[in-house]
Simulated scan of single mutants.
Amino acid sequence: MSQTQSPFLPSLNGAQRPATTTARILAQGRYETITMLRNGEQLVLAIIMPLMALFALRFTPLLDGLPGTRIDIAVPGVLALCTLSTAFTGQGISTGFDRRYGVLRFLSTTPLGRAGLISGKVIAVLSVLVLQTVVVSAIGLILGWAPALGGLLLAVPLLVLGAAAFTSLGLLVAGTVRPEATLALTNLLWIILGALGGIVVPPGRLPGLLGEVAPFLPSGALGDALRAALQHGAVDLTAVIVLLLWTAVAGVLAVKWFKWN
Rank of each mutant, 00 (worst) to 15 (best):
T89C: 09
V103E: 07
A19P: 00
L169M: 14
A225P: 06
R17F: 10
I71N: 03
L62T: 15
K121P: 06
D98N: 12
S119F: 10
P10S: 11
G29I: 03
A115Q: 13
A195P: 02
L209S: 11
A165W: 02
H232Q: 15
T89I: 01
T167R: 08
L209H: 06
G29R: 04
T176I: 00
V75M: 07
A254M: 08
R105Y: 13
T60A: 01
T21R: 15
S85M: 11
L226W: 05
V134G: 03
F216I: 08
T60M: 02
L189G: 04
A229T: 06
G162P: 07
A165T: 09
V136W: 05
P61W: 03
M49E: 03
R178H: 12
G198Q: 00
V242C: 06
G90K: 02
G102N: 04
T186M: 01
G29T: 03
Y101L: 11
V160Q: 03
L9C: 13
P61K: 01
A225E: 04
G40E: 09
S85A: 14
S137R: 10
L9K: 15
G29D: 04
A53Q: 05
A115Y: 12
I142P: 08
T247N: 10
V249M: 09
G96E: 02
T247A: 13
N187P: 06
T95I: 11
G96Q: 04
L206V: 09
I47N: 04
P202Q: 10
L210D: 05
F97P: 04
S168L: 01
G116K: 07
A254S: 15
R114W: 12
T95Q: 11
T86G: 00
G150C: 03
T186G: 01
A53W: 15
G65Y: 04
L37Y: 00
T33S: 11
L185M: 11
L237I: 13
L243N: 06
T86D: 09
T95C: 09
G211V: 07
D64A: 15
W145D: 04
I71M: 04
A56H: 07
F97R: 14
N39R: 03
R17G: 12
K259V: 13
I25F: 05
L26D: 03
T21G: 14
I139V: 15
S11I: 12
A221Y: 03
E212Q: 14
G223W: 03
W190Y: 15
F8D: 13
A56M: 15
T35E: 13
A248C: 09
A239G: 08
A165G: 05
A184P: 02
E212H: 14
A15C: 10
R100V: 07
T110P: 11
W246N: 05
T95H: 12
E212W: 13
Q42P: 00
T4V: 14
E32W: 01
R100E: 12
L243A: 01
L206Q: 07
R205G: 08
V44K: 07
L183P: 02
A23S: 13
L158A: 06
M49Y: 15
P157L: 00
T69K: 10
T83N: 13
T21K: 14
G233C: 04
C82Q: 11
T176C: 10
R24D: 04
T95A: 14
L84W: 08
A53C: 10
S6M: 11
G68P: 11
A225M: 02
M49R: 08
